[in-house]
Design a protein around this nucleic acid. Structure first.
Lengths: 206, 206
DNA sequence: GATATATTTAATAGCCCTATTAATTACGAT
DNA sequence: ATCGTAATTAATAGGGCTATTAAATATATC
């Protein structure tokens, strides 16, 4: 009666949708494109996901969680503040490297369609506020020891996100400005990963 | 025979287009929307600009120049490296504040439609390369004096762009994460403007 | 193997969007 | 006032996209 295992088709559709949403965003990805990508009939896309909007959301939600969780999990095994922070920055960078189009899509779709912030908020609850408070405390403790200057946690987080994300968001512009090809760009990425950690740690010195 | 002065209509269309392109991007802005915004017939949009694509380009070009020129003009009256850099960072931030949707649209449209990089490149020629080289020299001179550490100019510029732009690109997400309203957000912006200069200068210390 | 259910397809309704065309009005020059 | 050009409009062709429907095929269950 019931499907035991996800037949591969539904999964395929989701994957094709992911690829195309990444490449073109929501508005410019059509259900016909998705079907063509999978090699199935366009009606199937609607059969499984009803509407394009619902398909997008089911893709979007999992990605939002992925994007956020980088900060939460990484670096907790480290003992020093500097060690923890370094690992968090690196982990964030690495997840972006694996999903280079993700930050862009995130910012884009939320901008164009502000209601999506709700799905965002619903997924996270008040975790952000708690996280910020905890982070503020850590900073305060470290500052009390005189090892770093005081800075609001939100500013530090924004700095990390922005410095890491820019390489992926601005990828085509950077290539155009610098004339770098794909290979050189990869090298830049490796350098930038170190540079970001370095610059951020320096910027925190008292 | 010839139009002496741009009749206001063409200008109005361009302005309405600008507003809507900022709000919704290219794909989701329709010529009918633009006409409605202006209060004119939709055919007029095509009468003046032929196609939606051409209309977009004529808006896009001027904006690209605006975006770039911030770096070139600002701070040249200052004498010290630190003074110059500070002014450049601030000027860049201020231009973004006046055009909060600009970086986003820039990144977005170039991502979705990579051919636009050409219009980008055509507008700028090899200015970027020259600029980078000049900046590299300034950094080297300053580093030789022991006042800052060595860093590739491209990294420094990317840091500036990313740290400044993030507040505008991620506006809705930041509001969602922090729960800030418009007023609080404005305050954050003011603080962030200072913080960016501060953090960047610190990150350069030897 | 018969029957029920799940999957897939073909066809299409209905909508909205871009761009064009042909007709109308406004306006400047002589 | 008239003629010519510019500006504007109404109407619509033509195309593409989403979503639905009804029919066909595959798959599981008994």
């Amino acid at each position: 009666m019931k499907k035991i295992k996800d037949s591969t088709t539904e999964q395929q559709i989701l994957e094709a949708a992911e690829k195309l949403f990444y490449e073109r965003g929501f508005a410019m990805t059509h259900t016909t494109d998705i079907a063509r990508e999978v090699g199935c009939n366009q009606a199937l896309v609607h059969y499984y996901f009803r509407t394009k909007e619902k398909l997008f959301e089911s893709f979007f939600k999992t990605k939002v969680q992925l994007f956020i969780s980088a900060f939460l999990t990484a670096g907790n095994e480290e003992t020093t503040f500097e060690g923890k922070l370094t690992r968090k920055i690196e982990a964030h960078f690495d997840i972006l490297r694996k999903n280079p189009r993700l930050p862009f899509l995130l910012f884009n779709e939320i901008s164009v369609n502000p209601q999506r912030v709700e799905s965002f908020r619903a997924n996270l609850g008040d975790m952000p506020q708690l996280l910020l408070k905890a982070f503020d405390n850590e900073i305060e403790a470290e500052a009390k020891e005189g090892r770093i200057r005081r800075i609001p946690a939100i500013d530090l987080i924004l700095t990390i996100i922005s410095m890491n994300a820019i390489m992926f968001i601005a990828n085509p512009i950077i290539k155009a400005l610098t004339g770098a090809d794909e290979k050189e760009y990869e090298k830049m990425l490796g350098r930038r990963r170190k540079e970001n950690v370095d610059a951020i740690l320096r910027s925190l010195r008292p």
